[in-house]
Amino acid sequence: MNIIFSWIYGWFISIFGEDLDYHLFGYECQGDEFVLGDRCLYTPIGLVALGVAILFFVLYYYIVNSAKLNRWWHWVIVMLLVGIVNFFVGHAWTVAELPNMGGCLTVYVGDCWLFGLANAIVSALFFIIISFAGKWGSSQCKHTPF
């Protein structure tokens, strides 16, 4: 699972920077050296992103399941909500990690905001995949977004 989530978030390293990637992948500073530990943060962050995407999917397609809210732009709004929630989750999670990063990694709060953005994109991708896979059982939204 670490490998899968690291691979997915790896697409966005250019956004939030290599140093934050090292830390989230599990590297720790021991003096000036990098040592690979067993604490890969991509997995819990990714699982939360996936969970939020599933939660919003179930809410939209099966709980609310509304004939009034089944146009493509309603779905886009839900996807944006998923992204916004995970944007703040990603940002908050990485900001909380700043004190644990050690002196060998240079990570700024701005990188945390950018990771939040990457997390939002990842969660939106999850929401898109889940929507297309699971929309068919919804009576009102089976053709949403198209």
Binding site: V64, S66, A67, K68, Q140
Partner: peptide, 13 residues
């Protein structure tokens, strides 16, 4: 949640 003609649509769907 759906009202009026949207509730009608809901039942048709």
């Amino acid at each position: 949640f759906d009202k009026n003609f949207k509730f009608f649509d809901n039942r048709l769907n």
